[in-house]
C-alpha cells in the first residue's frame, strides 16, 4: 500500500500530474472575489471564511476524476484488482494520495489567501483547522464519486453532479465552524459535526467505492 501511495504521489508531482491545479484554482478564486465584491474591508472580512471554503471545495472537485480514471484507461485498475492489496485499501490509499496532493496544499495556503480578503487574525487559525478536519472528507467522498463514474467517458459532469450534494454538509459545518470561531463564539458543535462527517466518510466510503469499482470493471 505504501508503494501505491508513493506511486500516486510521484505521478501527481511529475509533469502532467495535475499537482498544483487545485491550488492555482484556489488562488484564482481568492484573488477574483475582492475584485468582484468590491474593496470594502468589512464586507470581505465577513464573507472570507465562506469564500475560502467554497474555493477549497471547488478546487478539490476539479481533480477528482483523475483518482481512478487514468488507472482505468491504462489498465492499471484491472491489475490492481487482481493484486494482493484489497480493493478497499486501494481506494483508501488513492483518496489519501489525492488529499496529500490536493487537500493539504489548500489547507496550508488558505490562511495566506485569507489575508488577501482582509480576514481578521483569529481567522487564519480557524480556517486552517476547519479545512484540516474537513478536506479529508472531501477527498474520500470524491473518491466514492470517482469510483461510481470510473467507466464513463467524460464522466466529469456526472461526477460533479453526484458529489456536490454530498459535499454540502461538509461545507455547512466547515464554514459555520470557521465563522463562529472568528466571531469569538463557541464552535464546538459544528467542529464535532465536521469531524464526524470526516470520520464516517473515511470509515464507510472505501467499502462503497470498492464495490462500485468492482461493478464498473465487469
Amino acid at each position: 500500500m505504501i508503494a501505491l501511495l508513493a506511486r500516486d504521489m510521484r505521478l501527481a508531482i511529475r509533469a502532467g500530474g495535475g499537482f498544483g491545479l487545485g491550488l492555482a484554482f484556489f488562488l484564482i478564486v481568492s484573488t477574483l472575489v475582492p475584485f468582484a465584491v468590491g474593496p470594502e474591508g468589512a464586507v470581505l472580512a465577513r464573507i472570507a471564511p465562506g469564500i475560502l471554503w467554497v474555493g477549497a471545495l471547488l478546487a478539490c472537485l476539479l481533480s477528482l476524476d483523475r483518482i481512478f480514471q487514468l488507472d482505468f484507461e491504462d489498465g492499471s485498475l484491472d491489475l490492481l484488482a487482481t493484486a494482493p492489496i484489497p480493493m478497499e485499501g486501494t481506494v483508501a490509499v488513492k483518496a489519501l494520495a489525492h488529499w496529500i496532493t490536493t487537500g493539504l496544499p489548500l489547507v496550508v495556503a488558505a490562511p495566506v489567501f485569507g489575508a488577501l480578503m482582509n480576514m481578521p487574525e483569529p481567522g487564519y487559525w480557524w480556517i486552517f483547522v476547519t479545512l484540516l478536519i474537513g478536506t479529508p472528507a472531501l477527498s474520500m467522498i470524491g473518491a466514492f464519486g470517482a469510483a461510481l463514474t470510473v467507466g464513463l467517458k467524460r464522466g466529469g459532469l456526472l461526477l460533479s453532479l453526484l458529489v456536490l450534494p454530498l459535499y454540502i454538509p461538509t461545507l455547512i459545518f466547515g464554514a459555520e465552524a470557521a465563522t463562529r470561531g472568528i466571531g469569538g463564539f463557541d464552535n464546538t458543535t459544528p467542529l464535532l459535526m465536521l469531524a464526524g462527517i470526516t470520520a464516517a466518510s473515511v470509515a464507510l466510503l472505501p467499502f462503497a467505492a470498492s464495490a462500485a469499482i468492482r461493478i464498473n470493471l465487469r
Binding site: R7, R10, L11, G16, D74, G75, S76, L79
Partner: peptide, 18 residues
C-alpha cells in the same frame, strides 16, 4: 493469478525500472 491484459498498466511519466 497474474493477469496480462491488452493494456499494460504502465505509467508514461515513470521510468521502466520504476
Amino acid at each position: 493469478i497474474a493477469y496480462g491484459a491488452h493494456a499494460d498498466g504502465l505509467k508514461g511519466t515513470l521510468t521502466v525500472a520504476e
